[in-house]
């Protein structure tokens, strides 16, 4: 294992990212997403890595020491893969979203013990605006037609179909992201195109509250939520936020909402590390993207910055704790947390995926 020397960071804490192993798919150079999945075979359950390129998805099994073996490659059809949808506690199933600019299909990739073969199944089609994998083999999605929006929970069967479907009452505005609520298993939150946070009761499907995020935090995307002491703490990011002198360069923020009154207050702002703000675009007066995309697990956030670096923030401390510089042979394109363990999955533009221990 190679210990990386990290760039100097603002703030007192400097955690380390230790390179554990590297996965290189020589047949692919177009990684679009990476994730992890629990996979059980021959009585042994292991955390495997899943990589996706536009036309195929590969399952990698760990070998000792620090080596990975391709277990299965699923070839997809004409619609490109655009996202892996992690299912937090599911085993032997990979969920993927396919489409062009928007999600048009959701498919399951799985192993059928009945037929002793790997297979894929179509779960949902439509104009899907947002999808999130939930605990207990469930999936929530928002689907838009010209007339209406459908927000639906789909329970997955062991054979790759849908066991049960439940509709949630949709808000008027399009839901663009979902997040489960830690500490309150029956609650679900979402963020809408009109920059509101909505709260549902998962059991009854009721829409409990719609709360404005406020003009200070434009184009918010929710990542995680935590219920504590009568408040709802929602982790939001602003992928297209403008730089603000007052707040620095916020990448993630934690907003406390009082669901009783719908009033809110920002409690923590995680700024971009010094020298890694958005690219300076000549003639652009604002709306310069500060980062490309990110991921949050527990209280850790990570994102690929427009500088080509990957940053890690501790949301409780409110500052950047680790940074992977762009380096060679290519800049970073993907940053994801493993669904278990303290692994950071970092994807390069050339298709290489590096596993770091945080």
């Amino acid at each position: 294992a190679e210990q990386l020397s990290l760039a100097p960071l603002d703030g007192p804490a400097q955690e380390s990212l230790q390179l554990v192993s590297e996965l290189k798919d020589l047949s692919s150079s177009c990684a679009v997403d990476v994730s992890t999945v629990w996979w059980e075979a021959a009585g042994s359950r292991e955390l495997c890595v899943v990589t996706a390129c536009e036309s195929s998805v590969t399952l990698w099994k760990p070998l000792v020491p620090d080596r990975w073996e391709k277990v299965q490659i699923w070839q997809l059809g004409e619609i490109p893969v655009i996202q892996i949808v992690p299912l937090p506690d599911a085993c032997n199933v990979v969920c993927i979203a396919l489409g062009d600019l928007e999600i048009a299909e959701i498919r399951l990739l799985l192993y059928s013990s009945e037929h002793d073969s790997f297979k894929q199944s179509l779960l949902k089609t439509g104009t899907i605006k947002a999808v999130l994998g939930l605990k207990e083999r469930r999936l929530v999605s928002s689907c838009r037609t010209v007339q209406e929006q459908q927000v639906e929970i789909t329970s997955l069967s062991e054979t790759g179909g849908s066991k049960d479907r439940q509709t949630l009452l949709p808000p008027e505005e399009t839901v663009l992201a979902f997040a489960e609520v830690e500490g309150m298993g029956e609650a679900l939150v979402g963020t809408t195109a009109a920059n509101s946070v909505v709260v549902w009761n998962l059991k009854t499907g009721q829409l409990l509250r719609k709360m404005p995020v406020g003009y200070s935090y434009p184009a918010s995307i929710c990542h995680r939520a935590y219920a504590d002491s009568g408040l709802l703490f929602v982790v939001l990011s602003h992928p297209h936020a403008k730089e603000s002198e007052a707040r620095g360069n916020p990448a993630f923020c934690v907003i406390a909402f009082n669901p009783r009154t719908a009033r809110s207050r920002g409690v923590m702002f995680s700024s971009l590390p010094h020298g890694h703000a958005g690219r300076q675009v000549p003639g652009a007066s604002g709306c310069v993207p500060l980062y490309l995309e990110g991921d949050v697990r527990d209280t850790l956030a990570t994102a690929v910055l427009t500088s080509g670096a990957i940053a890690v923030w501790d949301l409780l401390l409110g500052h950047c704790t680790a940074l992977l510089p762009p380096g060679s042979p290519g800049t970073w394109a993907l940053a994801r947390w493993a669904t278990a363990g303290a692994w950071l999955l970092a994807g390069r533009r050339d298709g290489t995926v590096c596993l770091y221990q945080y």
Binding site: E186, Q206, G230, F257, R260, T261, R265, V267
Partner: peptide, 23 residues
């Protein structure tokens, strides 16, 4: 965060809003 910022806080907000919201 305090009640002066956010208004009256209820520990049972989820149950209360579920009882009040349309089914």
């Amino acid at each position: 965060c305090s009640e002066s910022d956010l208004g009256p806080i209820s520990l049972n907000w989820f149950e209360e809003l579920s009882a009040e919201a349309p089914p």
